[in-house]
Amino acid sequence: MSPGPAFSDAEVERYARHLVLREIGGPGQQKLRAARILIVGMGGLGAPASLYLAAAGVGGLVIADPDRVETSNLQRQVIFTTTDRGRSKVDAGLRRLTDLNPHVETQALQLTVDASNARDLIDGFDLVLDGTDDFATRLAVSDACTATGTPLVSGAIGRWTGQVGVFTGRPCYRCLVPEIPPEVETCQAVGVIGALAGVIGAMMALEAIKLVTGAGESLAGRLLVYDALSAVTRTVRVAPDPHCPSCGGDQTGGV
């Protein structure tokens, strides 16, 4: 890959802490500027993840969410303010991201990502972050990423526990969650500690930056689980499912 255009003086100043970082430097920052990333869900996880990716200098950032900002969102969805109540999340988020870093090309999609549109939407992106709170969307995004060969960073939170996984082929997210669980707790019903969304969302952004720049060792094939009440983090391997309809066998299922 040939290097992109030279950074302007304003970009050099903005990304100075990356440029002197051995694992990123100029080549890594060029990769970030060339990257096109989709964030599905602008809730508790998409909010901090999008802020950190915009701040990091990701060149193309697209955010997708069908919802509008509600007062109850403000406890954890830190990209929004009180005056954003009633606005679409993607429009409010787009304004904040542009204010944070005008060098990033941002786009807002006020839509629901599902099995009918996920593959066409995801095809062409370098990376997808999924911070949604329903399994139907998560599985649709995972299947589409598997079908298009797009790396996926997936995050989830509940009460006091969060998790981050990276899926770059086999295993895929469907190997971990084959189908929608019959009983699912929602944050609305059982609650969630607000700061946990920031922790997991920032981890998602960090894994995305590592994938794009090639820095360090990614979580690919592993799941990081964080218990905030006990301040304990553990990482477990995700085993490929040989019968997975998305990434296993003859791959006749999926999207």
Rank of each mutant, 00 (worst) to 15 (best):
G4V: 03
G4R: 04
G4E: 05
G4A: 06
P5L: 03
P5T: 01
A6C: 01
A6H: 03
A6L: 03
A6D: 02
F7L: 11
F7V: 04
F7M: 07
S8C: 12
S8A: 13
S8F: 10
S8P: 13
S8M: 10
S8Y: 10
D9P: 05
D9K: 05
D9N: 07
D9H: 07
D9L: 08
A10F: 10
A10L: 11
A10S: 13
A10M: 08
A10N: 09
E11K: 00
E11I: 01
E11H: 00
E11A: 06
E11N: 01
V12C: 10
V12Y: 06
V12N: 11
V12W: 05
V12G: 09
E13I: 11
E13V: 11
E13Y: 12
E13N: 11
R14H: 09
R14A: 06
R14S: 07
Y15A: 02
Y15N: 01
Y15F: 07
Y15W: 02
Y15S: 03
A16P: 04
A16H: 09
A16Y: 08
A16W: 06
A16V: 12
R17F: 11
R17W: 11
R17H: 11
R17Q: 12
H18C: 08
H18D: 14
H18L: 08
H18N: 14
L19V: 03
L19R: 00
L19D: 09
L19Y: 01
V20L: 03
V20G: 00
V20A: 00
L21C: 13
L21S: 12
L21I: 09
R22D: 14
R22G: 10
E23A: 11
E23F: 05
E23D: 12
E23T: 08
E23R: 07
I24S: 02
I24F: 04
I24Q: 02
G25V: 14
G26L: 15
G26F: 15
P27L: 13
P27K: 13
G28A: 02
G28N: 04
G28F: 09
G28H: 08
G28C: 01
Q29M: 06
Q29K: 02
Q29D: 10
Q29F: 09
Q29I: 02
Q30L: 01
Q30Y: 02
K31D: 09
K31Q: 15
K31M: 12
K31L: 13
K31A: 11
L32Q: 08
L32D: 10
L32E: 11
R33C: 07
R33P: 02
R33V: 02
R33F: 04
R33H: 04
A34L: 13
A34G: 15
A34S: 15
A35N: 07
A35Q: 08
A35H: 05
A35T: 03
R36V: 07
R36D: 15
R36W: 15
I37G: 01
I37K: 00
I37W: 09
L38E: 11
L38Y: 08
L38V: 05
L38N: 06
L38P: 08
L38S: 04
L38I: 07
I39Y: 03
I39V: 06
I39S: 01
I39Q: 02
V40D: 06
V40K: 00
V40M: 03
V40T: 02
V40W: 06
V40A: 05
G41Y: 13
G41H: 15
G41T: 15
G41A: 14
M42C: 14
M42Y: 10
M42G: 10
M42D: 10
